[in-house]
Design a protein around this nucleic acid. Structure first.
Lengths: 346, 346
DNA sequence: TTGAAAGCGCTAACAG
DNA sequence: CTGTTAGCGCTTTCAA
């Protein structure tokens, strides 16, 4: 049973293929009665025009692709959801590719996307978070960008001039730092995140800056770099707590590490926030799942994804768009932060 | 700057397009020297053959699609990851579609998939979890299945005869029930999940059965149906705790509701597991994020996704495959379950 | 080993 | 309003 084509429909309706095409795309007026017969036949065979053929001639694939480093990290599904929902409305279908943090897979996918003629690529995480991305990895992306709109979400590639949608992570971290200072904390630490990633860098820098504004400083031994996982958060927190002097508050690179930190603290019998305050970043579902609920910084994740598709749409359709869109995060104060213990107060 | 085609390559190499096609696909021997010139030119222009054109003639799109109801629920990204990773190895790219629980979107996507000539569809959640799926919704899927391999993950459509990969959820629930009984619990409740979904049904039935095996029963007022969210878990648990008599253990439809239950219990000053035991289902990352860590049932989620793609691959390539694959879950005992208080013991 | 030529299924002038 | 006719960019006989 061969696939039914526009030709079969045309023959059975006693018209030419172009007429069928016209009713399919309502690209030109067709006599009502003719239209109806055609529609009926289409219905009858449940005919679906071949998108490959259409794409070939129209030079459109109707697809957008997203590259994420780790779909099991709740931040990424949320971005995807924002993107996919927006794309669906605009008639696009979404390729999702998980690179598991391997840059070679990003390269591989970039190539596949060109073959498949995707109409836009949304890059979230991966090489675009590297403080020093190797030039050839940058080059590669820029070359693809010549033929396909690319939007970077929460990342950047030096001198690439690519479109970006991102959260002002420094501002977010400054807020949480300020919050701790307002509570009376002076001994503040930072944990989590790899030091060669901008996400980490920006946050550490923001903490330092804010502390300095208040004549405080971030001690070297109170910066602990590592992964972004719960496990890492726990380990790093343990290191911190094993130190000679303990901070009264800890800012974590994300909610995962914050939760790890909470666990480490509680395992030692510390109470949160009475003995130590902990703040996360991302406002992932996890942050309200734990007890105590996490004080954290929310970035409008869904919107990040939605805007990325909107931007791609603008580029495709030649609608003028600014290159950079920055979203302001917000501090969400919950239960994991409080005043430091007396001994630490003035 | 028009897109470069196989013709351009052929012309510059002074050969015919068929020769270029041959080196592209190594579909027939080509003189080494010719091959090399062609390769060089391909490199030079970074030529990528148009997958749309190729797909059109070969009747292959190189894509597989997945439909999920809620990508922000960590269960689904995990399944996706298993599928995508396997698909990548086999040369497929993945469409991911989130339906937000709307069956109309499933319909819409099914149609798009046919247009785009996807080579396989993995259906996870949605209508396939309905205890009584409306016949037209079933019909629709079966029609698509005539032309495209479809695999249902953790769900079913009555009399559809479609391929399925699923976890034995009843067995998993039986395990957690047994675990509680072994600990000495006799007053066991079940919360969460919509009563018209098989996921919920199967679990409730399994609890009942297991209890009856031990001359115990599941009281009607100790079954609380609702959503699958943390919020729902909390509300349902509150209802339970407001009742005249309280159970000593609660089995939850998934980890989300279990976490909600934990929170509700703790808010009332109950200690877990001393005052009440709680068990989840899924072994999502959440289950180790909370304190106390959740006793739960792990379903090999990644494998579920991986097998689905493997199955599709078998169908596409005419490799004989059995229709149903059932994965056995495992009980993971952690900190949220323990012996009931004295007064409840013999 | 290679080339010529016929499509894959559809759209889009162009001409009625 | 409708039909004819080129292709879109590639693969694949069939001959050479």
């Amino acid at each position: 049973m061969k696939n039914i084509t526009i030709y079969d429909i045309a023959k059975e309706a006693g018209v030419s293929v172009s007429t069928v095409s016209r009713v399919l795309n309502s690209t030109a007026p067709v006599k009502a009665s003719t239209k109806e017969t055609i529609m009926r036949i289409i219905e009858k065979y449940k005919f679906q025009p071949n998108a490959l053929a259409r794409g070939l001639i129209k030079k459109e694939s109707g697809t957008i692709a997203m590259i994420v480093p780790d779909i099991t990290n709740p931040f990424f599904p949320e971005v995807f959801w924002g993107s996919e929902n927006e794309a669906r409305e605009k008639g696009y279908t979404f390729f999702l590719c998980n690179t598991a943090g391997e840059y070679s897979r990003e390269t591989e996918y970039l190539s596949i996307f060109r073959e498949k003629r995707v109409e836009g690529i949304i890059f979230v995480g991966g090489r675009i978070n590297l403080a020093n991305c190797p030039p050839d990895l940058v080059q590669e992306v820029m070359e693809v960008a010549e033929g396909t709109p690319i939007v970077l979400v929460n990342g950047n590639l030096a001198k690439s001039g690519l479109h970006r949608i991102y959260t002002d992570e420094a501002a977010g971290t400054a807020m949480s730092t300020q919050h701790l200072i307002d509570l009376g904390h002076k001994d503040i630490a930072f944990i989590g995140g790899l030091d060669f990633m901008t996400t980490t860098n920006q946050k550490v820098k923001a903490v330092k800056k804010k502390l300095e504004e208040h004549q405080l400083s971030l001690r070297k031994e109170w910066i602990q770099y590592g992964e972004f996982s719960i496990k890492a958060g726990r380990e790093l927190m343990n290191k911190l707590l094993d130190g000679e002097e303990r901070p009264t508050a800890v800012i974590c690179v994300n909610d995962f590490t914050a939760i790890g930190a909470v666990k480490a603290a509680m395992e030692r019998g510390l109470r949160i926030p009475d003995d130590i305050s902990i703040v996360g970043f991302d406002d992932s579902p996890l942050s309200t799942a734990v007890i105590p609920e996490l004080t954290t910084v929310t970035q409008n994740t869904y919107e990040l994804g939605r805007l990325a598709v909107e931007r791609i749409y603008q580029i495709i359709n030649g609608i003028p768009a600014k290159k950079n869109t920055v979203l302001q995060p917000e501090l969400i104060v919950r239960q994991s932060t409080g005043k430091p213990r007396q001994k630490n107060e003035y």
